[in-house]
Amino acid sequence: MKDRLRAAFAAAAVAIVLAACSVHHRGPHPGQLKLGMVTDVGGLGDHSFNDSAYRGLLESQSQLGAYIQVLQSRSAADYQPNLTALTNLHFDMIYAVGVLMSRDLSEVAQANPTQHYAIIDGDPTAFAGDSNVVVVTFKEQDGSFLAGALAAMMSTTHHIAFLGGEDLPLIEKFEAGYAAGAREVDPSTKVDVKYVGSFDDVAAGEELTQLLFDGGADIVYSAAGKATLGSIDAVRTRPAGTYVIGVDSDMDGLLPGKVLTSMVKKVYVAVFDIAKAIKDGRPLSGHIVLGLQQHAIGLTDFRYTRDQIGPQRLARLALIERAIEEGRIVPPYTLAGEAAFKPVPLP
């Protein structure tokens, strides 16, 4: 019996060695552009900004010939080890995706001043002194304003709702823009607000969305990262005329006809631009703010809901969009700004 076990072990060892000889090297080639990315705890598959950032990496791979690698974080304790592991392997650019990583990235960046980093949604004040970190933020209020305007136009009950992930300054931008957009169209529209308390608790996202619908709202804008997937589950069984608005990535196809539109944050644009700048030898630095004007923020093409919205509403939405681009409307990004916001009369 023991002998047979030993023989099996030996055979396995030989097989492994033989197989090993036939496998090619799969690491980066010398001179290849190396791009690394660390997700936050939402991880890949969130249909949100982690996925959007990953799309930017894939485009860099196909168009710039980059070697790409993603390390996912299962917990807050993973951020620094993941960032450090990529740093130790001398990647050309390391993306930290998500505001949750701000302070961890700051510590790692200060310890490795020659390494380039980028943080999506980072808090710019946390990186004031770190010249090796590019901070990318978005004017989420621009797109949220459009989402709010569309929701107010579509609501039959004049009652819409907002579901946030965690109650952070970042999400306040979504909430403020959304509420102001609704007021721009119809000041009598009621806007309910709830927060999940997490960006990855899909079950809680669904439950809270149900509550919002039960409370009388017929459209819920869910700015809750991966938890937004729960909101989409919630609208599945609701009657026609009830919608969810998705966030970050294009979620329209997840439940065609029920996802009114998505407020898309084109993180991939930023990821690709930063990679290209590195490749061209002129790395970006400082704080980059991307909004409607840069075409990095906006709604989707309404491919499943165009008929339900109708040409009149679309035309009005286009007017508002142009007004924001031209600076005639400045969507507020804080709740205080929202309270002070006065609808701008448009022709």
Partner: peptide, 27 residues
């Protein structure tokens, strides 16, 4: 092997990544 990598590459990456320098040993 299932992932398509030579164990030699895999283990050398593992050792380098864990013991290959001060930062690695620290982690």
């Amino acid at each position: 092997l299932v992932a398509g990598t030579s164990p030699l590459d895999g283990f050398s990456a593992l050792i380098a990544g864990s013991l290959g320098g001060r930062s690695q040993i620290g982690e």
